[in-house]
């Protein structure tokens, strides 16, 4: 897998950084991230990528920074879509889907990068309140009538998403480059969903949540892929005819090129 490094360098953040350095006041800390582009185009050779986001702290306290007591968590959350979790059980010796549970508002992808091990940044309670992290992000069950299986299916949902690579975690994926400037590296899976993604950054100081910021990122198909996709949805019958003609021509050419008799 060729991993391209896509750099989303924030010009705005850099400009802000200069301003911030000049005005060392007692204002409360803040956090900024910026993306140099708000659109990522997926081309034919896309095979999953690393996404780099730059950001900076506002009014960092130099002493706290020197003691590495600032922590940053950066998340890239895919579009939310409904999903159904099914469970197979053995009936008459055959494994059959029996129980199922529907969820809405489930991010299709969720990529998280942290400065340190999550348990070293803050306590589970804060994560739960912020709905931050694969194990804490909020999923809404359609039907709350079976609380005993709900926990089981929610856990299965997170586990399956992790296994598919759509939910990923990078401990140490956020690195401070200076007192205030940081760089976050997140993974885009090969099957990253098309749509509007939300990049969010969370700042923690001495284990306490301070501030959050976010930016939008659209992931779209590039020209050729988009044209094919649009053709297939808008002109299905014509697309089908084209697919058949392509197959016939390929079969005929294949016969000429690879003829063995």
């Amino acid at each position: 897998m060729t991993v391209l490094r896509r750099t989303l360098l924030s010009i705005a953040a850099m400009a802000w950084l200069a301003a911030g350095a000049m005005a060392q006041s007692a204002n409360p800390e803040g956090i900024q991230i910026g993306l140099s582009t708000d659109v990522i185009r997926i081309t034919t050779d896309f095979a999953g990528e690393d996404l780099t986001i730059f950001g900076s702290l506002e009014n960092p306290d130099v002493l706290t920074a020197r003691q590495s007591r600032y922590d940053v968590v950066v998340v890239l959350e895919g579009p939310a879509r409904p999903v159904t979790v099914r469970r197979k059980d053995r009936i008459l010796g055959i494994w059959i889907n029996t129980l199922q549970e529907g969820f809405v508002g489930v991010p299709e992808s969720y990529s998280i990068a942290t400065t340190r091990m999550p348990q070293d940044i803050t306590d589970p309670n804060s994560y739960r309140q912020l709905a931050l992290g694969i194990d804490y992000l909020h999923v809404q069950p359609v039907d709350r009538e079976r609380p005993e299986t709900l926990a089981e299916f929610t856990a299965a949902l997170r586990e399956r998403k992790r296994a598919s690579g759509l939910y990923s975690e990078r401990i140490g994926g956020v690195q401070f480059l200076s007192t205030s400037l940081f760089r976050a590296t997140l993974s885009l899976a090969p099957n990253v969903p098309i749509g509007t993604h939300k990049a969010r950054a969370f700042l923690f100081k001495n284990g306490l949540f301070v501030k959050e910021t976010s930016a939008q990122l659209a992931i779209v198909k590039s020209g050729f892929e988009q044209t094919l996709y649009r053709l297939s949805t808008d002109h299905g019958f014509f697309f089908g005819i084209c697919a058949v003609v392509l197959a016939i021509v390929t079969g005929w050419l294949g016969r000429i090129i690879f003829k063995r008799d």
């Binding site: 297939s232 299905g236 019958f237 089908g240 058949v244 392509l246 197959a247 294949g254 016969r255």
Partner: peptide, 30 residues
């Protein structure tokens, strides 16, 4: 089948099919 699926479900991936075809037509002759 291809035309019915393309019309009703939009599930024919022509890029995927084309790659499979290239392998397939070569293999079929051998």
């Amino acid at each position: 089948t291809t035309i019915v699926h393309a019309t009703t479900n939009q599930t024919v991936d022509i890029v995927l099919a084309f790659i499979l075809m290239i392998g397939g037509v070569a293999g079929a002759q051998y």
